[in-house]
Simulated assay, not measured.
Amino acid sequence: MRAAVCASHGLPESVTVQQVPVPALSAGQVRVQVDFAAVNFPDVLVVANEYQVKVPTPFIPGSEFAGIVSEVGGKDVGFAIGDRVMGTGLFGAFAAEVVTETRSLSHVPDGIDTRLAAAAGVAYRTAYHSLRSVARVEPGDSIVVLGGGGGVGLAAVGLGTALGAEVIAVASSQEKLDAAKQYGATGLINHREADLRTSLKALLPRGAAAVIDPVGGSLSEPALRSLCRGGRFVTIGFASGAIPRIPLNLVLVKGIQILGFQFGDIAADEFTRNEAELRELLGSGQVVPHVGAEFPLDEAAQALRTVADGRAIGKVLIRVRGPEGLDPGTPHE
């Protein structure tokens, strides 16, 4: 089968498309023919060997995919041949086929196509659990979303709006802010053209209830200063490449809560509730994932580069299978 392969750690351009053996299927596993894979910032870090979990080379990058079940390893695995599924893993998604454990899979909600399902996994689940269970956003709350045009950020804008919040989106270009406005943001700040602290104070004189931060770097402190007393600051990641240093006196004086997001930290009952609510939002079309760019498998390195350079608006997808349902590298009969 064809797959994008990282033979040695380094820049996105080190990833090349090759023929590799088809992965074997073991009992309890599921084989998925991948239609689309999504590119996430951690994929770039894994390729560079800068992620918190190291993956030895050679390996197939990619942490998120959607496709069709083609084989199951035994009975009662919860999936059947022909099921539309979406899945996640640390690596392996940029390939014609993925073999995975069932715990990493879920059925694609009715009402959403497989392409959009690939864009709705990690980013939308991260954003929704962060908003619902960590930031505990309520209707009428004002929230600030950093990186408001990126994968997690734009998802947080749309989902925050769906939860009834007033959303202020902070991004690095007018194009990204235009996308955030389309998804419901009522306040828009280009942090490269305006002072973030001053702009947030003007838009939110009473302060924000929560900040969602997948960016880090120099944006975090002014965003934290915009919180009202008792506000929640949720850190999700550091797409800027820099981990911020927060003056703790701000936390003390304003009674702010600084919270980190991890899927495993969400209480089981809330996790189940959140997943059900998110499936309803996606399946009903109340929230539609934004695909900002799509690349064929042969251009997996370019897709990774787009994300690495911060040029992605919403989700970047890799189209693995062609319009006839074939691996683009498979000769037509």
Rank of each mutant, 00 (worst) to 15 (best):
A3E: 05
V5Q: 00
S8E: 12
H9T: 10
V17A: 03
D35R: 07
A37M: 06
N40L: 07
V44A: 01
L45Y: 01
L45H: 02
V53P: 06
V55T: 05
P58E: 07
G73Q: 15
G78W: 10
A80Y: 07
M86T: 12
F94P: 03
V98F: 02
V99Y: 07
T102V: 12
S104Y: 14
D110I: 13
G111N: 12
T126H: 02
R136A: 10
P139G: 04
V144L: 08
G149T: 10
G151H: 05
A156Y: 06
L159C: 05
L163W: 00
V170D: 03
Y183M: 12
G184S: 02
A185T: 12
R197N: 12
S199R: 08
A202F: 15
L204W: 09
G207Y: 02
A209E: 11
G217E: 03
R225N: 08
S226A: 12
G237E: 03
L248I: 13
G255N: 04
G255V: 08
G260T: 09
F261S: 06
F261W: 03
Q262V: 15
F263Y: 13
D265K: 14
D269S: 13
E277T: 09
Q286V: 15
V288G: 02
V291Y: 04
E294A: 04
D298K: 14
Q302E: 07
R311P: 11
R311E: 14
A312S: 11
V316P: 01
R319G: 14
V320K: 00
D327E: 12
T330Y: 14
E333I: 14
